[in-house]
Design a protein around this nucleic acid. Sequence first.
DNA 1: CTGAAAGCGCTTACAG
DNA 2: CTGAAAGCGCTTACAG
Lengths: 339, 339
Amino acid sequence: MGASLRDVALRAGVSVKTVSNVVNGYEHVTPTTRSKVEAALKELNYRPNLSARNLRRGKSGIIALALPELDSPYFAELARSVIRAAEERGYTVLIDQTDGRLERERHVLAGIRPQLVDGLIVSPLSVGREELAARTDNTPMVLLGETVFEGPADHVAIDNVAAAGIATEHLVALGRRRIAAIGVQPPDGQGTARLRLQGYLDALSTAGLPVDEDLIQQGATFHRADGIQAVKDLLSLPEPPDAVFCFNDLLALGAIRGAYEIGARVPDDIAIVGIDDIEDGRFSTPTLTTISPDKEQIARLSLEFLQSRIDGDRDAPPREVQADFRLMERESTGGRTAE
Amino acid sequence: MGASLRDVALRAGVSVKTVSNVVNGYEHVTPTTRSKVEAALKELNYRPNLSARNLRRGKSGIIALALPELDSPYFAELARSVIRAAEERGYTVLIDQTDGRLERERHVLAGIRPQLVDGLIVSPLSVGREELAARTDNTPMVLLGETVFEGPADHVAIDNVAAAGIATEHLVALGRRRIAAIGVQPPDGQGTARLRLQGYLDALSTAGLPVDEDLIQQGATFHRADGIQAVKDLLSLPEPPDAVFCFNDLLALGAIRGAYEIGARVPDDIAIVGIDDIEDGRFSTPTLTTISPDKEQIARLSLEFLQSRIDGDRDAPPREVQADFRLMERESTGGRTAE
DNA sequence: CTGAAAGCGCTTACAG
DNA sequence: CTGAAAGCGCTTACAG
């Protein structure tokens, strides 16, 4: 076992309180005492016991980040930013991978590790508004993503309807007229898909383009393989699309691959745009036009909100904030090669 | 504040010990007592205080995973596996991103969060063998990667010399004769790069091929942008290579992109192989031939080792284990399209 | 089967 | 400036 404050105190011939003062950088300690203590600290290789400190202080300096999967590039990049932002405030981050599964998300909300984490950042996929509101654990929480709005907690997300609208408008502006959507889900599916579909439909309507049901068939997930399949289906239609708006970058990268496999040229035969701005899309062939959400801002705001709740502001009404995003024009819609 | 065991005991009219027994699923509690306690637990919405429990038990159920960066696909995929493997054993995982920077790695080794984590899995890049050996914190640790061998701790990695050899041999077997390497670093650089270079040189030697210094110029990092630049430099040589072994998949994906940008065909003009088997390479155009390390096995072994140390086996000599890997033939060396 | 009590290692009023 | 002591919430021998 390691040495405790008490061991150090005994060794240095002072009280535990004095050692604690030195360890915690308390100002008013005489140089003599301080150096005695420091010597003892070093000799015994003292390490504070954080569980004891946390118990006493009533907080841990740990926050949990619950997201569907760490190996999906968008979430990996977001996690990076969250961890960095947390670090700047002295927090460390525990990761929970939910796979977007209801039971796992419930588990997170029910409070795994009660009183061990000071706060929780959750990106839910399956769990609904009601359940979120009914949660009994009262660890401060920030919600990410599009499942729940005006919810029972602070919420940070981009305006997905607007983002999808801008992506679609970009295709319209290029002169494309048969614009498909990949990533549509059943009406009871993910909120993200619903909002992005909305933005797509709005943009078509604004442009005076008809909605062709053949061009908005439903898909299963947001992964590459589905993008491949979907684009192949679309391109084998009697009247194939000349552009496709993919609800995320993985689908779009799959679509690029699918088009290649059946010999369609991107963007000549079909222009492709995604959402997320994951790194892969900056190096794919062709490079991917996409909507880039400001992930660092999302991370920063999440931590700011969490911190304010942790610091006591628990009863303020939930905040609803939209993060910035912008269109990145690249080769998949005719933009030029990255420099 | 939440209710404590004491509050619950008072409410249920029993002792703290009895409540603790119920909470911890202790067998021998009379049904009457149990239900009284359970009612009180529910009424007060009791949550155990994990800091207190950890303090008392002397362990936390938390392990830390320290790696260079979470948004590099290989590490993201590895992190996913580690988190899953940890979960199966009841551990949760804290992430430290070191960026491969010496000071950050030192900080990790010095024991951030002493006695809060039961164990540490570290993938070092900068820190050397001596420092690792001289560490004073005695939290059980497992080393990943190629920086340190026969080290002061259990170590899990693939046989990089062999892996690089097989990748290179594959190119030789295709009939390529001018095989370049991308990812080479200065002699004092990363261990990974050194070992992969070794495997490459061994394979050339076995095949009776000469080593051409022009084909093994040094690069800076293991990221896509460097792959682009390197392949362009190589292809503008008076005698360009007909194949290139990249020390990781990001470099290889960059190389694919770079070849495309200057109009070289892959694999016709230049065959490309990487190491890591990140998901992008299964969907890139062309898809990427690579060496696939068994990440789940690496994660599983890491946890197994860590667990045995945590469980008390601290003085056993450090274990050195090699994880499996295999060659995945894909389009970038002429393999067929993914089904 | 259940209770009273000690103690994990720390921080923090309270004295002096 | 420093000490003695209480207490954070839990688990665990020790009794009975």
